[in-house]
Design a protein around this nucleic acid. Structure first.
Lengths: 253, 253
DNA sequence: ATATCTAGCTTTGTCGGACAAACAGATAAG
DNA sequence: CTTATCTGTTTGTCCGACAAAGCTAGATAT
């Protein structure tokens, strides 16, 4: 094959190239999180394209979480928030019609890994946060919605205590789909709330004592409890989407 | 405080509302993946906004993976690809300067979970795919770049064999950062390629025999091998970004 | 002199219209 | 029946414009 006479010409639309150019500057650290990107007019001048084109490129980066607008709507680079990206992944999981069995199995793996990390590396501040959450949980043990929210927070704090950001990120999409069901379960199972708080108490205690075995054991029990409760009201093999739809429907009645 | 006379009025910009409206239709299944969304002109008429506004909304959804343009650039709904979203997450991990220690610890957890699932639920087709990968790997054992690529594929296939889509998704961001280093390691450690292929062979064998213990053991050995190899060329506690930058720099010399 | 207010400038969000290139479908030629 | 051509659509990009919201600096009040 002879050397081609012409180089492959760029085929990407201009708005994409604008987005890529800004992305490169952020990824390789030339623009640091928090620093301003400039006004749309400045970008128009720098890239030599129309403002509409610049704005389309901005939308791409904004959705990707790489840039955001500050209080005065000016553009600035930012650290992509796990949470926002995880929300998109959760949505993708719903569309792929994953089942609660898949969700449960993966969450079991990730929560056990979280507690192991927390037992090894939790700081006093992590412990204080978890203790604070536990106290608030104990106070709302009869309120399924409030307790569900605090349960989700407890597990976020546990992942944070593991000091492993990759783990924090990996568990988030599943957790976003998994934990909302806590409300359904706690509300439907007598003593469910008390058992939940009790499990949290033992987990926190194990983390504080650096007792990995106990931490893992109580985390497993905690999730098995969830599973038993869930199976009383729905099937593990139904898709997440269908289960939520039905619950929303039942709640409206 | 008196009951407010007026409800809070919409504050979201029009392009966002366009994106949200289309997203809702896709999420709740009224528009199924593969179905057309309509032309930009039709959306202009339906939403009663300008085409520039519609296009900004489209960019948001396109970046989110909810819609794409087919061969003739027409809009259609689509299933968000894990891979694309995982790329965003990987990028986020780099910007958060996670270390290889975090990456390694989480990957160990997730790969072990994958192999456990694969041992339990791999189909004949899964086994055939893994066997095909193994044969190709054996053929390029002296080529670090080729072997690294096939190694990454082996682990993707293993996750696929677990039949757990949540797990497949959860492992992807870490894997995208983790496995590129295989090339560095295999290239730098004599016998590294042979050991890698040998480990894959034992893992596949264990999956085929439904021997969970052996599968987990060889997966752990496989990753520990990676870790030992990695520590010969870099520190586990350096950030992923720095390590890649240095490697890219060294490779150019 | 300090604090507050007001007017003007800037920037964003949206709009209308325009045009070239790429494309799909229909039509004509082989 | 295949190939080539024509024609209307659609996308990507551009230009210019304007109202609303934020910011800035000078004017005003205390």
């Amino acid at each position: 094959m002879a050397t081609p006479l012409f180089r492959r010409i760029d085929v990407a639309p201009a708005y994409q190239k604008v987005a890529d150019a800004i992305e490169r500057e952020i990824i390789n650290g030339r623009i640091k999180p928090g620093e301003p990107i400039g006004t749309e007019q400045q970008l128009v001048e720098q890239f030599g394209v129309n403002r509409s084109t610049v704005r389309e490129g901005i939308r791409v980066l904004e959705e990707g979480g790489l840039i955001r607008r500050d209080s005065s709507r000016r553009l600035q680079a930012c650290l992509p928030r796990y949470n926002k990206l995880a929300t998109r992944l959760s949505r993708a999981l719903i569309l792929h019609e994953v089942t609660f069995r898949e969700l449960f199995e993966t969450s079991m793996t990730l929560e056990v890994a979280s507690v192991e990390g927390a037992v090894e590396r939790a700081t006093d501040e992590n412990l204080a946060e978890l203790a604070g959450n536990l106290a608030r949980s104990a106070a709302v043990v009869g309120n399924p919605a409030g307790l569900a929210e605090l349960d989700a927070e407890f597990h976020v704090l546990m992942a944070k205590a593991s000091q492993n950001r990759v783990l924090q990120l990996a568990r988030e999409p599943a957790a976003q789909l998994f934990f909302p069901t806590t409300e359904m379960i706690v509300g439907g199972v007598p003593e469910g709330g008390a058992r939940l708080v009790e499990a949290h108490r033992h987990i926190l205690d194990a983390i504080g004592r650096r007792d990995k075995e106990a931490g893992v054991l109580w985390t497993q029990r905690h999730l098995q409890d969830w599973r038993r409760g869930f199976e009383k009201i729905a099937s593990l093999d139904r898709s997440v989407e269908h289960t939520y739809m039905e619950h929303a429907h039942a709640a409206r009645q």
